[in-house]
Write a protein that binds this DNA or RNA. Structure first.
Lengths: 256, 256
DNA sequence: CGTGTGATTGAAATGCTTCAATTATCGTGG
DNA sequence: CCACGATAATTGAAGCATTTCAATCACACG
């Protein structure tokens, strides 16, 4: 079962190509906030000239697996991609969810260090690493933008370290929800409704807690009136600012 | 109190300059293993031409603080630098310990995202970011090496996420010790003696656990015959392979 | 030689995981 | 479109791990 089974490479002659974006140096720090386009039109077209569009029709499709030979780098156009790695014991840790505009799949010694799978239907740019490498060498400005992008990803990873290192379950879940609220693809600001294409397993493996604990944390937040579960994957968040208060508190839960 | 108070910039005319190193694509993955020098002589000298050497005589000196304007990038020549960030509650999380050959201080929107402090006496290269940026644009190969370096740092951060997300106290401590054992600066292979210039507070903030818990974990490892505390900062590790077994086990402690 | 900081250990409280059972949800095929 | 089955989600209860508070001990440095 190769990873191309479920993908339908689309033509590059589409009228309006989605943008390949790099994060700006000037974006809000420590936020998954809307991203700016740092690439010039010329750089965009350079990238798109060597890119292929892949459409994954369903969730849980493998894009690539850890320890495979790495030939391509990817960028999310729409949907969500789950980046994960397995420990020796076989336990899965979700390292990140890649959202529209994100870049992933950089090779490590010619090999993928992580596994990438779709969480829901998704479309991606696929860029051959070899060509990207050559383009970067001939276009230093483009390369610098990718370097800045990578620096941003590093800070995101550091943010996750902060969260995993010093937040309790309730705060972890709140942090996660606050991240997703930034994306209008998933959060309807008017109705305060968040659509999570993730299971409690995904969430647990992302936050470093058991899926049961995730469910319990949702229950607690609901009891406190901070969220409302219309269904497991449709969450209403009436007051985002109140959720932020949960994160701001100490490690232990505040006494009433 | 500026950060230059304790530093003594040395002359650049030293006979043999320590190398500024970049990690190789081909180095062992997920290991703080000895690193290869990826930069050519020409690239080395380009960097060293714009670098200053700083010598910090003592530990706990601040190199830079989070939210300061960022003008320099640093590389460790000798010693250890602690990279940390504080949460809203003021709690400190140590994101990484920078060891000889490591690079740190990349600006985020012109500002340092983290705090960098010496853990013990240390000497560093200091490179003006503005000049480094220009050099990268005129030397794409050099830039690519720095990009690869950054990719390595990202994978290191991901490794920390794995550890924080799914290891218990004993495993976290064991993982940490195994990392440090790789560095001959701190581990004497002949006597199996590890010298840790870190306090239990540093360690706790790094592993996301209370310092008391660190002490207890050391006690457990000692009881199991896996380490021996000659003094709090002088640890004997008779059998490194046995320590690895601790990490390999499940999250819960194995029954006897 | 004293003092302050770091390290260790004890004991109680709390939070998280695990196992187990039940209920809800979603995708699929009839 | 509905019913079904598989999978996900929820909740309960017990056990264990970690934190916290507190007290003591060790050590380095002036």
């Amino acid at each position: 079962m190769t990873r191309l089974n479920e993908s339908v490479p689309a033509s590059l002659t589409k009228a309006r190509l989605p943008e390949i974006r790099a994060r700006s140096f000037d974006c809000e720090r420590d936020q998954l906030s809307p991203i700016e386009n740092l690439l010039s039109r010329k750089q965009q077209s350079k990238l798109q000239a060597i890119a292929t569009i892949l459409d994954y029709q369903r969730g849980n499709s493998t894009i690539f697996s850890e320890s495979e030979d790495a030939h391509f780098v990817y960028s999310v156009i729409s949907g969500i991609v789950r980046i994960s790695r397995h420990s020796e014991g076989g336990r899965r840790q979700v390292l990140a969810f890649m959202l529209p505009g994100d870049l992933f799949g950089l090779p490590d010694a010619g090999i993928y260090a992580n596994t990438a799978e779709t969480v829901c239907p998704a479309s991606l740019y696929r860029v051959p690493w070899r060509q990207l490498r050559e383009t970067m060498l001939s276009e230093p400005e483009l390369q610098l933008n990718l370097l800045i992008r990578l620096a941003f990803d590093l800070r995101q990873a550091q943010r996750r370290i902060m969260i995993l290192g010093q937040q309790n379950t309730l705060q972890k879940l709140a942090s996660f929800l606050l991240d997703f609220v930034q994306y209008t693809d998933f959060y309807d600001v008017r109705n305060h409704r968040l659509t999570l294409p993730l299971t409690r397993f995904d969430l647990g493996d992302y936050l470093g807690i058991a899926p049961e604990t995730v469910a319990r944390a949702f229950a607690k937040l609901e009891l406190a009136g901070l969220v409302r579960r219309n269904s497991p994957r449709h969450i209403e968040i009436p007051d985002v600012a109140a959720l932020r208060q949960v994160v701001a508190g100490g490690r232990r839960q505040q006494r009433p």
